[in-house]
Design a protein around this nucleic acid. Structure first.
Lengths: 240, 240
DNA sequence: CAGTGGTCTAGACCACCAC
DNA sequence: TGGTGGTCTAGACCACTGC
C-alpha cells in the first residue's frame, strides 16, 4: 500500500527544512508554486503544510505566506513529546532503553478497571509493571492494564521487547485515540524502590486511557518518573 | 465576517450529540447524507468531523462510519484541558475565578529572557506575578513575562480582569502557537506562601513560550499549582 | 457486492496583507 | 492592485468493511 500524497509532500518539505534549503523565519514558496513543482494540487500541498504547522515546523500568515519556525529556545533534553502513539523505544531511537519486567500476571479486574476497559467481572486483564531504564538509569515506572482477550499471546519476552510493536505489527491492531492526564504526586514505596526517588521527591505521572480505532478501550496505564528525569512537552496551535 | 461553514456544521453536529440526538457508540448519518441535509459539500462535512474527532467527540472507522464517543470514565473535575489558548477565566466559565496582582513591574530582561522573547538588552519587559483563586482558595500562581512594546497600556486593572482578553480584544493581537512544557517540582517559598503548599508538597508546573501568528514571541510564563489542585488533560489522535 | 470514509483534482471566490 | 492563504464545490477514484 502506498503512502498518501500529502504525507509524501510533508516529508519532502520537512527534509528541505531540516536540510537548510528553507531557512528559519523565511517564507516557503507559495502553495501554488509548490503544487506545480511537485505535480499535485494546491489542496494537497495545503494539507501537508497543515500537518507541519500542527507539529510546529512552520507557521502561516494568511495573506503573507508560510514561514519556517525557528528553534524553540526552551526545549530541553528531558522534554518528552506527549503527542505521539509510538512506544518508548520507537519514540526515543537515539536513547538506549532497557526494560525490566517487575510484575506480569493475569487477573480479574476490579470495579474501576471494569468501568475503564468496558469489561465484565469475569473477563481477565493483564496486570503489568515494568521499569524502563535510560542508559542504565531508572527512568519510567510503567503500570499497564490490558484486556486479555484483546492481546492474546502476550509474554515476558514481548514485554521486554516492545508491547506497542506487538500490538500493532503482530496483532494488527491500531490505536485510535487516548485521553491523557498529567499530574504531580508524592512518591510511593515503589517509586522510592525502583526510581531511586527520595521520600520527598515529587513524581510526574501520566495516566492514559487508550482506544482502538474501533472505539474499544484497550489500555489503561500509568507512567511515573522522578521530577528531575522527565518533562512532557507539546506544541499547540490556535484555531485548528 | 461570518464563521466558516465547516465550523458552523461542527457546531450543529456537536449540539446534536450533546442534545442526545446522536447517541454514544452509535453511528452518525454518513457524510454524504449530512452534506445533502445541511446543504454543503461532503468535504465540508468531513472537515467538521475531523475537528470533532480531534476534540474526542467522535471517532471514525474507514469503511464503517462515524461514531459518537462515549464519556471518558477517568475524567475528573480537577482536569484542565491543556489544548487551548483562552485565558483562565474564559476556559473555566463555570468556576468563580479571582485574581490578586502580587507583582507588576517594568524591567530589563536577563540573558535568558532576551533569548526566549527575541529582545535586545535595553528593550524592557513586564514582570507579572499573579495569584489566581478558585472559590476563594489559592489555585494557580502565574508568572508572566511580556515585551513592553508589544503590550502597551498594560495596567493592574487589566491584570485583575483578563490579560488574554486585553491582548486579543483591545490590542487585536492573535496567538498563533505555543510550546508547552509540564513538569513536577519541589515547592518554593512563594508556593508555600501563596498556594498554601507544605514544604514537601509537589508542585505541578506548566512553562509556556507563546508566539503571535506573525511568529513574534509574545509571552513566556510559568503556571504553578499544588499537586492536589490541578491536572492537565488532553485527547490525542493517532495519525493526524 | 454495496456502502463507508480517505484522498485528490481543477476551478472558483473570499479575506487579508503589502505596496 | 496583486499576491497570499482559507474555504468551498462537484466529481471522481480508492481502500476498507460487512454481508
Amino acid at each position: 500500500m502506498t503512502q498518501a500524497k500529502y504525507l509524501e509532500i510533508a516529508n519532502i518539505l520537512t527534509n528541505r527544512i531540516r536540510g537548510g534549503q528553507y531557512k528559519a523565519r523565511q517564507p516557503l514558496p507559495d502553495q501554488q508554486a509548490l503544487a506545480n513543482e511537485l505535480g499535485v494540487s494546491r489542496l494537497t500541498v495545503k494539507k501537508a503544510l497543515d500537518g507541519m504547522q500542527r507539529e510546529g515546523l512552520v507557521y502561516k500568515q494568511s495573506g503573507l505566506g508560510t514561514f519556517v519556525s525557528g528553534p524553540v529556545p526552551i526545549k530541553e533534553t528531558n522534554d518528552y513529546p506527549v503527542n505521539q502513539f509510538s512506544g518508548l523505544k520507537a519514540s526515543m531511537p537515539s536513547q538506549s532503553i532497557q526494560t525490566e519486567v517487575l510484575h506480569f500476571n493475569e487477573e480479574l479486574p476490579d470495579e474501576n478497571l471494569q468501568k475503564y476497559l468496558s469489561l465484565k467481572k469475569k473477563q481477565p486483564i493483564y496486570d503489568i509493571l515494568r521499569l524502563r531504564k535510560r542508559n542504565n538509569q531508572p527512568y519510567i515506572l510503567e503500570h499497564d492494564f490490558l484486556p486479555v482477550k484483546l492481546v492474546p499471546g502476550l509474554n515476558k519476552q514481548v514485554l521486554k521487547d516492545s508491547l506497542y510493536t506487538y500490538i500493532h505489527q503482530t496483532l494488527k491492531l491500531t490505536f485510535g485515540s487516548a485521553y491523557r492526564k498529567i499530574r504531580a504526586c508524592k512518591s510511593t514505596k515503589n517509586d522510592q524502590r525502583y526510581l531511586n526517588a527520595e521520600f520527598d521527591d515529587p513524581i510526574l505521572e501520566m495516566q492514559q486511557l487508550a482506544w482502538l480505532t474501533t472505539g474499544v478501550p484497550i489500555e489503561y496505564s500509568f507512567s511515573r518518573s522522578r521530577f528531575d528525569q522527565r518533562n512532557f512537552s507539546m506544541v499547540e496551535n490556535n484555531r485548528f
